[in-house]
Amino acid sequence: MTTFIKQRSAIALGSRIGVIAIPLVVFIVCVLFVPRFLSVDNLQNVLRVGSILLIAACGQAAILIVGGIDFSMGSAVALLSVVTVILAPEHGVALAFACGMCVAVLAGLCNGLLIAYLKLPAFLVTLGMLMVLHGLASLLSGGMPLDAAPSPSFLWLGSGHVAGIPVPIVLAVLAVLSLHFLLRYTVAGRGWFLVGTNFNAAVNAGLPARRSVLLAYVVAGLFCALAGAILTSRVGSGQPNLYPDLAFATIAVCAIGGIPLNGGRGSAVQVVCGALIIAMLNNAVVLLNLTSAWQQLLMAAVIAAAVLLPQLHTVRRRYTHLFKGNAQ
């Protein structure tokens, strides 16, 4: 059994190195083969554009760890943007954004209540919410994009700077640090890992399992609200189709980062790696003047590679695992 345990720790170490190594490799490849990649401006752009996805993916990661999923993020940010733009002229920018973000958090709360306390399947609940929120956003905006008054305060979140660094990047760093802290050092985060690994066992161990799930969705709602606010500020308008594929993109980020979709494992580092890889590749596609079709094909290939590479280990392991022998 000790040999097996040594094998297992070696694989774990390998995957931990792998998680950080792969974005590094992608970075090097981009530096070598993509013109104008390695300029301060461009790198800043990459980080700024990727920030939104990164922040939202932090939320999705928390949900995935607790064993759930959220398909409604795209509609939540859409509704946020519409509410914000509608309220801004009369109630001021700050209050408008605050309300918009509250809406996104409420959506997360709604999801959490239906999933944790009414025990409805997360898959269907968030799909239903996706449509409900999108319908609401369309209703409020009349189906058309609404432009916000172009005030510098409105655009600050998306285009402003703090000590020379773009605001989205600062917020993204804060979001990642918060996620890391939550996951590693808090009772709530530990609860997510326990609940996500085995819900029944968590209940039997006396943990507030349902509350834990609800909390994950609310926290994700917060991350989503932040991402949505930055995006709204960046584009300066509220539209029902602001970022319809956001949820899928966050799932892709988590999958590429190696976070399993059935819960119990995950880390902030993995989210960052997944987000960086996608941001760099998207940037590369633009700089290489490829059409958006190639961006999508590349994304699909990367996702496939990211989930298949770790399989190489398990395929070999399947034949040396002490407790599973298979004549096939």
Binding site: F248, A252, T291, A293, Q296, L297, I303
Partner: peptide, 22 residues
Amino acid sequence: LRVQPIVATLCSMIAAQGLARL
């Protein structure tokens, strides 16, 4: 290849969209 359905079909969804655009 034991990939989760959500990830695999997400992958092919993006690939199909990309191919269609191409």
